[in-house]
Design a protein around this nucleic acid. Structure first.
Length: 266
DNA sequence: ATGGTAGGGATCCTA
């Protein structure tokens, strides 16, 4: 089972590019972030024509996530459950950043698609929201781990985990993506027992997933690694490969992110 | 220290 994640930065502007990539990469499941439209505005038909099921959790203008799958998407939950919501599922978040569903291939895998808040400027209310959101994500991971679920959490984390994950780490020292508190929250999540799939497959640096539209970042390879796949122990057992489709960034009308994907024996 | 580019959709916000 091939599962991909791609921050497309607007489905309306990116539809041809996303369809071209889907056609050739042919993931079984795709997790999309920043669809930047309400559910009714998402162009389902071209995806369904390619044999994909579509589930969206959209929002006007900003954010928005979607799951695209050749296998049925079961038990869909929209919105990150609030740990203080006493079991209430979804819809606790005014921003559409999270969607979960189960796909059943050779094995059942719970797919958690996320678009973690950027958090800039830091400090400030946006950064507070980012840290609260990371706490809620950690609580969700704990709940799924306690059930010994085979699951993965993938998407745009807006977290640069380590200095080697940035071409110019010194440029990010005061940024919400790289502040010590941000990286500590990400480590707490990983240290629950999750596997960073890219790092599990290679120790080589320079696996960036994002290059800013500004300042010629792509031309200078001034990138950062902020899109991640974190796998539960049961899911990590099935990990065959993890790669980044870097060449997608060089195409016509690219997103500022590129796809990252895992291959699972599932 | 600043501003550079892109998307959405409205003449500005977010990244």
């Amino acid at each position: 089972m091939k599962v991909a994640s791609f921050n497309i930065n607007g489905i309306k502007a990116r539809l041809p590019a996303v369809l071209d990539w889907l056609q050739e990469a042919a993931p079984d499941v795709a997790i999309l972030q920043e669809i930047k439209t309400v559910d009714a505005g998402f162009p389902r038909e071209p995806f369904e024509d390619m044999g994909y099921n579509v589930e969206t959790h959209g929002q006007k203008s900003f954010n928005g996530v979607a799951l695209i799958s050749k296998l049925p998407l079961e038990d869909v939950v929209r919105g990150l459950p609030d740990p203080e919501g006493a079991g209430r599922e979804g819809a606790d978040d005014e921003e559409a950043r999270y969607i979960e569903a189960t796909v059943v291939g050779a094995r059942a895998v719970r797919i958690c698609g996320l678009y973690l808040p950027n958090g800039n400027p830091a400090p400030g209310p946006k950064y507070d929201y980012k840290l609260r959101w990371m706490e809620r994500l950690e609580a969700r991971a704990k709940a799924l781990l306690s059930q010994e679920e085979c699951f993965l959490m993938a998407g745009d984390y807006n977290v640069i985990p380590q200095a080697e994950d940035a071409a110019r780490p010194e440029a990010w020292t005061d940024d919400a993506l790289f502040l010590p508190e941000t990286r500590a929250a990400f480590r707490r999540l990983v240290n629950l027992g999750l596997t960073d799939a890219l790092r599990a497959r290679t120790l080589a640096p320079e696996f960036y997933t994002y290059w800013d539209f500004q300042r010629g970042a792509w031309a200078r390879n001034d990138g950062i690694r902020i899109d991640h796949f974190l796998l539960s122990p049961q899911c990590a057992d099935l990990l065959e490969d993890c790669r980044i489709d870097k060449e997608v960034r060089a195409r016509e009308k690219p997103s500022d992110h590129v796809p990252i994907w895992v291959s699972l024996a599932a």
